[in-house]
């Protein structure tokens, strides 16, 4: 039996008992499907935080990973998640992460100064990415979605083709949508509901880990890195380069894709038709 210490735990992961089964195991992540129909994600070596994420220290993950097998039962009681051969303590010394609130309105300046700076960092980062067929397709379809957000049926069709599209554990289409959902929720924009309703029926079309992120974005909840980037854009003296660097370090292109979705969504909500990045 190995004991693993969690570094961060999302506030929605109850301290009360729950049980479930390992649904999928990846190199640095694992999803657990709970008996109550919900899901949680175990992550390692990532700066990410989320309401339904437990993040272990990278060093701990190496010991834990061999014990994670698809279909094996896990159970949690009093802040300890136990499975065959392991225990993860997410209560005693783990930092608790609570999704910050969404402002629900567009400020008078429409975030314009922050968005212009963020877009410059985004453009530079995107130029550095190697071309990849599914990712390119995801960006084209996302742009198509942004043009159709005011038409419910058309938006639904675009979302059907976008969810799960792209390379990686969290496909680019999903990451773009996470950013877009965060932006529309932050702006209190009614199009949030169009996207949320369009995404929810398609969650099973993507990977387990990505499904979790999308479901959390639909709640809506922020994840830590995405909120950090939004806050830097929204604050007058926000550290936009630092927040973007941290977000962009998430996965290969996931962070950049989320940033692109957020910047596009904020620009859309604020009506900056002169520089909506992906439309």
């Amino acid at each position: 039996m190995i004991d693993v210490q969690a570094r961060d735990v999302g506030a929605d992961i109850a301290a009360s008992p729950f049980a479930g089964a390992v649904e999928a195991v990846f190199a640095h992540a694992c999803t657990v499907s709970l008996d109550d129909g919900r899901r949680l994600t175990l992550l390692a070596g990532s700066e990410e935080q989320g309401m339904r994420i437990i993040t272990a220290f990278a060093g701990e993950w190496g010991r834990l990973h061999p014990h994670l097998h698809v279909g094996r039962r896990v159970a949690a009681d009093r802040g300890v998640l136990s499975g065959s051969g392991f225990r993860i303590d997410y209560r005693r010394n783990a930092a608790l992460w609570q999704s910050p609130s969404f402002p629900g309105c567009v400020p008078a300046d429409g975030w314009r100064p922050g968005l212009l700076e963020a877009k410059a960092h985004l453009d530079a980062a995107m130029r550095g990415l190697a071309p990849e067929m599914t990712r390119t397709a995801a960006y084209l379809r996302f742009a198509d979605l942004c043009r159709k957000l005011h038409r419910r049926e058309a938006a639904d069709q675009a979302l059907h083709r976008l969810v799960g599209l792209g390379p990686g554990l969290t496909p680019s289409g999903d990451d773009l949508l996470c950013g877009l959902l965060g932006a529309l929720a932050a702006a209190g924009d009614a199009r949030f509901e169009t996207v949320r309703r369009g995404v929810m029926p398609h969650l099973d079309r993507t990977t387990s880990a990505s499904k979790d992120y999308l479901a959390q974005a639909c709640t809506p909840w922020w994840t830590g890195l995405l909120h950090g980037f939004f806050a830097a854009i929204a604050e007058p003296e926000g550290d936009i380069p630092g927040a973007f660097r941290r977000l962009a370090a998430r996965g290969h292109s996931s962070g950049i894709d989320q940033a692109a979705g957020l910047v596009t969504g904020l620009a859309l909500a604020a009506g900056h038709s002169d520089f909506i990045p992906l439309s």
């Binding site: 067929m133 599914t134 397709a137 083709r161 976008l162 969810v163 799960g164 599209l165 792209g166 390379p167 990686g168 554990l169 496909p171 289409g173 079309r205 993507t206 990977t207």
Partner: peptide, 17 residues
């Protein structure tokens, strides 16, 4: 050659391509 996660959207795109 192409290695991808086997999501519906990725498979659809491979078929389309």
């Amino acid at each position: 050659a192409s290695a991808q996660m086997a999501t519906d959207a990725n498979i659809d795109l491979m078929v389309e391509a």
